[in-house]
Every structure is written in C-alpha cells, then in structure tokens.
Simulated scan of single mutants.
Amino acid sequence: MNRAGGQPFPRDTQEAKNKERPRRGRNWSIVMIKVLMVPLLLFFSLVIGLMIGYGVVGHKPTAEVFDLNTYKHMWDLLFAET
C-alpha cells in the first residue's frame, strides 16, 4: 500500500520488517512489590473501614475494633438461636 506521494509506509519497508522490537522484560522485584501491595492495601482498607464503621457510625470507642471479645459477642448475637 502506497501513499499518495508514492512513498511506501514504514511498515511496508524491509527495514521495518527485519527490525526487532526490544523485549520489555520486567524486573521481578517490581512485580513482587505489586503483587504484595494489593493484599496489603486491601487489609488496611478493611481496618480503616472497620474503625470508621464501629467508631463513627456506631458511636463506640474505636479501640474496641481490635478487641477479639467484640467479635465473639457479635458471633454470639448472630447465632444465639441456632
């Protein structure tokens, strides 16, 4: 396929066909950082959401989010009749 001026497109030339594309290899440390960053961000967003939900919305002390007895009490309330 030629242009109107008679010059071929660069993709049609032999040089463009023989030209190797550089490999875009990724550094393994960058990939591992990205893989580990997603669960870490999810964990922190869960903790912040629990703190906002329990402390701000529920009007309770925010420090009780980290107390295991709080979740035992919720479990007992949910499954008391079963």
Rank of each mutant, 00 (worst) to 15 (best):
Ala4Tyr: 10
Ala4Gln: 11
Gly5Pro: 07
Gly6His: 01
Pro8Asn: 07
Phe9Lys: 07
Pro10His: 08
Arg11Leu: 06
Thr13Gln: 00
Gln14Pro: 05
Gln14Cys: 11
Glu15Thr: 04
Lys17Cys: 01
Lys17Ile: 01
Asn18Arg: 10
Asn18Phe: 10
Lys19Cys: 12
Glu20Gly: 06
Glu20Thr: 11
Pro22Leu: 03
Gly25Ala: 09
Gly25Leu: 09
Arg26Tyr: 09
Asn27Pro: 02
Asn27Thr: 02
Asn27Leu: 04
Ser29Gln: 15
Ile30Glu: 07
Ile30Tyr: 07
Val31Phe: 07
Met32Asp: 11
Met32Ala: 15
Ile33Trp: 10
Leu36Ile: 04
Leu41Gly: 10
Phe43Ile: 08
Phe44Met: 12
Ser45Tyr: 05
Ser45Gly: 09
Ile48Met: 06
Ile48Leu: 11
Leu50Arg: 04
Met51Lys: 10
Ile52Asp: 03
Gly53Arg: 00
Gly55Pro: 00
Val56Gln: 00
Val57Tyr: 02
Thr62His: 00
Glu64Asp: 10
Glu64Ala: 00
Glu64Pro: 02
Val65Pro: 01
Phe66Asn: 04
Leu68Tyr: 08
Thr70Cys: 07
Lys72Pro: 08
Met74Ser: 08
Met74Glu: 09
Trp75Tyr: 14
Trp75Gly: 11
Asp76His: 15
Leu78Met: 15
Ala80His: 12
Glu81Ile: 06
Glu81His: 09
